[in-house]
Simulated assay, not measured.
Amino acid sequence: MSALNPRPKPFKIDIEDAGYIDINFLCKYMRVNAIELFLQQGKFSNKDKEKLLLYSNKVAVDLFMDELDSEFLDGEDWVHLEQIEVARLNLVFSGRINQFQYTEDELRGYIQKELKALSILEE
């Protein structure tokens, strides 16, 4: 694994172990495409990118908010959903990151497409 990307092995941890918690947070709560942003970074090796994609596929269901998550975004237990939305819009409108607009099946399809593209680059 790259010295610039000191991340754990994707199949040896659970989401609770915080291996890619920044990616999880940005996708799940901020609803921005942190996976795409990671893949666009030239400083990460193709192996690092592959590991992120494999991990993201493994935890795809956890990259989407559910009703319980929404209940915590009330401004008391955690920040309010409106505050997250303001921050998300700032990120998206700055042009630095795209919105995370997938269903779980679409996300898995995107991940498979990116894995295939990486394997072609390595040939």
Rank of each mutant, 00 (worst) to 15 (best):
Q83I: 04
E36N: 12
K113M: 10
S119H: 09
A87R: 14
Y110N: 02
K47E: 08
V86Q: 14
A18W: 14
K113T: 13
L73C: 07
E67Q: 15
L118P: 00
L68Q: 15
K12T: 09
E50A: 01
E16D: 13
F100H: 08
G95S: 08
S56E: 02
I21G: 06
I13A: 03
V59M: 08
G95W: 09
L107F: 03
L81P: 03
A60V: 09
Y20W: 10
L107D: 00
A3M: 07
V79H: 11
E16L: 13
L68H: 15
N90L: 12
Q101M: 12
L37T: 12
P6W: 05
I84R: 13
A18E: 14
Y20C: 00
F11E: 07
I21D: 10
Y102Q: 14
L118V: 05
V86G: 06
A18Q: 15
Y29A: 01
A87Y: 09
N5Q: 07
D66L: 10
F25M: 08
L89G: 06
I23W: 01
F64G: 03
F93L: 09
F25Y: 14
I23L: 05
N98L: 09
G109W: 05
D22F: 04
S2Y: 00
D105W: 04
E82G: 09
Q101L: 11
E122T: 12
F64T: 09
Y20Q: 01
I120P: 02
E50D: 07
E104K: 15
K43F: 08
M30L: 11
L118Q: 03
L26P: 01
Q112F: 04
N24T: 07
E123G: 13
Q101D: 14
Q40G: 08
S94D: 10
L54A: 03
V32R: 01
A34I: 05
E123S: 14
Y110D: 01
L89R: 15
N57P: 09
A3R: 12
L115N: 05
K51M: 01
H80C: 09
E71N: 12
D77V: 07
F72A: 04
L107G: 00
L53Y: 03
V32D: 00
S94F: 10
N24S: 04
A34Q: 05
L115H: 06
L115C: 05
P10Q: 05
R96F: 12
K28L: 05
I23V: 11
L68D: 15
V92H: 06
Y110E: 01
R7G: 00
G95V: 06
L91D: 06
F38P: 00
E122R: 15
K43T: 07
Y29T: 05
I111T: 03
A3V: 10
E16V: 13
A117V: 04
